[in-house]
């Protein structure tokens, strides 16, 4: 097992190099550079085009260099914890990420918890009572959650909050609490709002989990060992929970890996609508104004999260399912 983990970690090194290249390629795909979009937006607003300032920025950040030089300038700083600069804010990328990563992780892990707490029991129920009214009901609502575009659901919830409860649900806290130290009041404010993104993003992923759980349960319930257990007189509850569900949950564990990157990209649209201080909206802004090092770093982090996630779920799978051995 230890061997396996070490081997997998070693394989990740060339993968990460490859990842940095791909992330960089994605952000350099759109034509032009930050300076072009910056100048264009200045002109649109009727501001003066400061040619000198533009040239200065270009020279400082090496925006006229060939792509591979720019790439090298970016990666070179990694061992020292430098991910480049945010052009639009003129500060290190790492600061922006450090500021937003905690909220991103908080919201995402709560979302994950929310989906699992509901999806697993519903999946089990739907399988045990296949084609019952309850099965249809859960199936319907589960799929309804996937079918509503995230931004629509977020807008509707915000509208309801405003119209019927008089609460402005955008952001994670009212502006005056920003930058304040954490106290009970601030936590309450956050608690009042944080459920919105959890529901919006959570419902979108719920049906998938329910379906996997239901399908696996159906498969397991047909197996001979279930019959055997029943014929021995094991109680039905125990047959379902300790026998079938125990095995049926394995495929769900192997999906954890794919959920981690959802951290950033999955909640992105909801984050934009709700104005959350998470990485998703920042990535969107960065891509739009071609703030390339910021965008590239966020994309890179989210791809690395997938790799880490897959490794984690493989290890978890081996712990939960004793039949799986890695040698």
């Amino acid at each position: 097992m230890v061997n396996y983990i070490i081997r997998r970690t070693l394989i990740m090194i060339p993968m990460i190099v490859f990842i940095t290249i791909v992330s960089f390629l994605i952000i350099t795909l759109p034509p032009g550079s930050y300076i072009d979009t910056y100048l264009a937006s200045l002109q649109r607003m009727g501001g003066q085009v400061e040619q000198e300032r533009a040239e200065a920025i270009k020279a400082r950040y090496g925006l006229d260099d060939p792509v591979y030089v720019q790439y090298w300038n970016w990666v070179r700083g990694f061992p020292y914890g430098r991910l480049g600069m945010v052009f639009s804010e003129d500060r290190p990328v790492i600061d922006v990420i450090a500021e937003r990563l905690p909220y991103t992780v908080l919201i995402s892990s709560l979302t994950l918890l929310f989906t699992w707490i509901f999806a697993i029991p519903i999946g089990i129920y739907s399988a045990v009572k296949q084609y019952s009214a309850g099965d249809y009901l859960f199936t319907f609502f589960g799929f309804l959650g996937v079918s509503i575009p995230n931004f629509l659901l977020a807008l509707v919830i915000m509208f309801m909050g405003l119209r019927y409860f008089g609460v402005n649900l955008s952001g994670l806290m009212p502006a005056r609490y920003m930058g304040e130290p954490w106290n009970l009041e601030k936590i309450m404010q956050v608690a009042q709002r944080i459920w919105v993104p959890i529901i919006v993003v959570g419902t979108a992923g719920m049906a998938g989990l329910i379906r996997v759980m239901r399908g696996e349960m159906l498969d397991q319930l047909r197996q001979p060992y279930i019959q055997m257990a029943r014929s021995k007189g094991v109680s039905e509850i125990k047959v379902i929970i300790k026998y079938a569900a125990r095995i049926a949950i394995n495929p769900l564990i192997s999906t954890i890996g794919w959920l981690l990157p959802q951290l950033i990209s999955g909640g992105m649209i909801a984050g934009i609508v709700l104005g959350l201080p998470t990485l998703g909206p920042k990535l969107y802004d960065a891509l739009m104004i071609q703030d390339m090092y910021l965008a590239g770093s966020i994309i890179m982090i989210s791809i690395i999260l997938v790799l880490v996630g897959t490794l984690l779920s493989d290890i978890l799978l081996a712990i939960v399912d004793p039949r799986i051995r890695y040698d």
């Binding site: 993968m15 791909v22 994605i26 795909l29 950033i264 990209s265 739009m288 989210s302 897959t310």
Partner: peptide, 19 residues
């Protein structure tokens, strides 16, 4: 396949869409 799955969808779409 694994690698393609690992690339976050929306940024990839955005990068390509903006291009």
């Amino acid at each position: 396949v694994e690698f393609t799955l690992a690339i976050p969808k929306i940024p990839l779409w955005m990068g390509l869409g903006a291009a």
